[in-house]
Amino acid sequence: MKKPYQRVELLGSEIIRPTIDLVYHLRIAPDARVVYIRWVLLDDEKPIAYDMQYIPYFPGITVWNDNFEYTSFSEILSQKNKLFQMQGRMNISGINCEREIAEILEIPVGTPVMQITQKILDDNEPMGYRQLFIKREWCCIRGTSHRE
């Protein structure tokens, strides 16, 4: 994002049944349970990003408490696995937002947004899946190329 957000608001945290997409991305059984966490990132009390996180449910994971704070996706997953090296795979694309995203970001349906999807893996096994939607005016992608 171009500049940091000022505040984060938890929209909800619950245990859900996985959709077909979640079964595919998390490589879980259709009858498994998934922790679903939703956040909105705000600047000047206006929404700038919508963050949805999906983690296969396992005993001991914190689903909700009074001090629930916005933490990095990998920090949440480290509750489950402290022994192995986690790695992430990320995909960045521009999409036209659907109704749910548009309502959260307070923009018209179909407005272009940046979508960042992220999978956290341990030994090539998915531990979590995330979708982050950012208003286009808050996006900037930079890179450096190297010639060998």
Rank of each mutant, 00 (worst) to 15 (best):
M1L: 08
M1F: 02
K2A: 07
K3S: 14
K3N: 11
V8M: 09
E9K: 09
L11I: 05
E14Q: 12
I16R: 09
R17L: 08
T19I: 03
T19Q: 03
D21I: 13
L22T: 02
L22A: 04
Y24N: 12
Y24L: 11
Y24R: 15
Y24Q: 11
L26A: 07
I28Y: 08
I28K: 04
I28H: 02
D31V: 08
R33W: 01
V34Q: 08
W39M: 03
D44K: 14
E45W: 02
P47K: 06
I48E: 09
A49E: 03
Y50S: 07
Q53H: 00
I55G: 06
F58I: 09
G60T: 09
I61N: 05
T62N: 13
V63N: 04
W64G: 03
N65V: 03
E69R: 14
Y70D: 05
T71Y: 02
S72M: 12
S74K: 10
Q79K: 11
K82R: 12
L83I: 08
F84S: 11
F84N: 13
F84V: 09
Q85D: 05
S93Q: 15
G94H: 04
I95R: 07
N96M: 07
R99D: 13
E100D: 15
E100W: 01
I101D: 06
I101P: 06
I101F: 02
A102I: 05
L105Y: 02
E106P: 00
I107Q: 06
I107P: 05
I107N: 03
G110Q: 06
T111V: 09
Q115P: 00
Q115A: 08
I120C: 03
I120S: 02
I120Y: 03
D122S: 12
D122E: 14
D122M: 13
G128Q: 02
Q131R: 13
K135F: 06
I141L: 15
I141D: 04
I141H: 04
R142S: 11
R142N: 13
R147E: 11
E148A: 12
